[in-house]
Amino acid sequence: MIVVNTEYIPGKRIVAIKGLVQGNTVRAKHIGKDIGASLKNIVGGELKGYTELLVESRREALSRMLAQAEELGCNAVVNVRFATSSITSGAAELYCYGTAVVVEEAPAPGGTV
């Protein structure tokens, strides 16, 4: 599966558009991490627990989107976008969406569609 956030894939030609696919997740960390984060709020610095949370959320949302694309029989997702929102304290929503397409090798090198 090729995943890009551009409208086309260099060297490939889009032969079919199967529509929008999306994945989202709302995740939280356990209270210990939240307490750690509020202590971090006094001195500043990276919130490692929340960075970890973001990384997990991104993976989860992406994999849900890719599962949808696979179900549609696609081999690529183009124009992927991420969006985030803070739903409640200590939790974050991560949403990603893109267009599922079928691509094949383009005859000309570096050719675009």
Binding site: V4, P10, G11, N41, G44, G45, P109
Partner: peptide
């Protein structure tokens, strides 16, 4: 258009930074 590309893939970077008091 003249750029010959072998491979294209998504890369991401994430971080959460705390505000200090």
């Amino acid at each position: 258009a003249n750029l010959a590309v072998q491979e294209a893939f998504l890369v991401t970077g994430t971080v959460a930074v705390a505000n200090d008091y």
